[in-house]
Design a binder for these strands. Structure first.
Lengths: 200, 200
DNA sequence: CGTGTTTTGGAAATCCGTCTCCAGAACCGT
DNA sequence: ACGGTTCTGGAGACGGATTTCCAAAACACG
């Protein structure tokens, strides 16, 4: 017994993504979002208490989607195969959904907003972080000789370096970049001890 | 025959760095800088035409210092030794001058400001970029089988991934992170062809 | 010691973005 | 048809940040 919504939360968040192509997160203003959406700012504030909550929601939605699909890849038994699949998935995602990937992979939760997150969003964020940590930990567990830090470096940090490089030049991730990332994680996961000698 | 300056350009830029510890670049306001400096905003605008020009100048100064010291490391004849030295230097720099390193290594010139840079700063920026490119190219030239993209990935992107990780967790770069980076670049530079087989 | 030049020190104009508020519209269930 | 509830639509208060402006201050030099 109520008027039905004209703009759903997802539509509003999609409008944020659309503004995000071509602008930094801190540049995303409610006015810009409402322009893209064709709605007045009041409708946005009806659903999201603050601008920061809106931005945080978009970040969370992207992260939860990311995690859901990544978990599959990380489930592959052989750790190197799992790592390669995870990397390929990430790079493919960065190609297909640049705005969402850039937002989640390049911007830390802490540096996204100035104000503190509301408890509910904070809960979702810590759950997401825990789930990602667990997935990586399980890969580490079945990779002989590889620490958690090593797995995280190989499967998250190194791919992000490639994504960042491509994003800053505006071009798409090319084949060579992908090959470099795959080489790297293959070495880091398959032969943890092979190279401990230090050159100097 | 003039009143001597009380606040030099370098002092003002240092004040920006001080604000930058704990705030994103877009959060740096002229008011905050003038507070740190103990000077009114007028004195700052006397030297820098706009806020963006000030921020750009700080970025450029950091980059030019970075390049000057990195060039030494990259001059070492053996490419792997040069790469290791370059990486160690970068990580050491990130430890000792966190604000400057974060600003230059983590923020792209394009995403630092909204408005276009004045011609003079733009000139310095392109010169800096060219000098960095040349240094990497010369390493690539004496590394058998390594493309420019490979060298750049190994010597800039991968170390930055480690720096970024450490910066986001607030902790310092630990020994394990450094070892991971060194392993990685050693493999990427020393054995470009060793791993071209694709798993799948 | 006076003159000229540069810098300081603030005060305030101006702009932009967040957020509030409320009247009216639109729909569901009975 | 109608009452109750939720949503829209827009106007504007409010705060914060950039930038302008100018009188006063401080020094170098003749």
């Amino acid at each position: 017994m109520a008027r039905p919504p004209k703009y759903s939360s997802d539509q509003i968040m999609d409008a944020v993504l659309s503004v995000l192509r071509g602008h930094r997160p801190d540049e995303v203003s409610v006015a810009a979002v409402s322009d893209v959406l064709g709605a007045p700012s009041g409708s946005i504030y009806h659903r999201f208490p603050t601008r920061d909550a809106l931005l945080a929601s978009v970040w969370l939605r992207a992260g939860e989607r990311f995690r859901a699909s990544l978990a599959e890849a990380l489930g592959i038994p052989d750790p190197v195969d799992a790592g390669l699949a995870a990397v390929r998935y990430q790079l493919e995602w960065a190609r297909r959904r640049p705005a969402e990937a850039r937002l989640f992979l390049l911007y830390d939760r802490a540096e996204l907003t100035n104000t503190a997150w509301p408890p509910q969003l904070l809960g979702r964020a810590t759950r997401l972080a825990n789930e990602l940590t667990d997935a990586l930990r399980s890969v580490a567990a079945r990779t002989p000789g590889a620490s958690f830090a090593r797995v995280r470096f190989a499967l998250l940090d190194v791919p992000q370096a490639a994504i960042r490089r491509a994003a800053s030049s505006g071009a798409e991730l090319d084949g060579e970049a992908q090959r470099l990332v795959e080489e790297t994680i293959e070495v880091l996961l398959a032969r943890p001890e092979a190279l401990t000698r230090m050159a100097s």
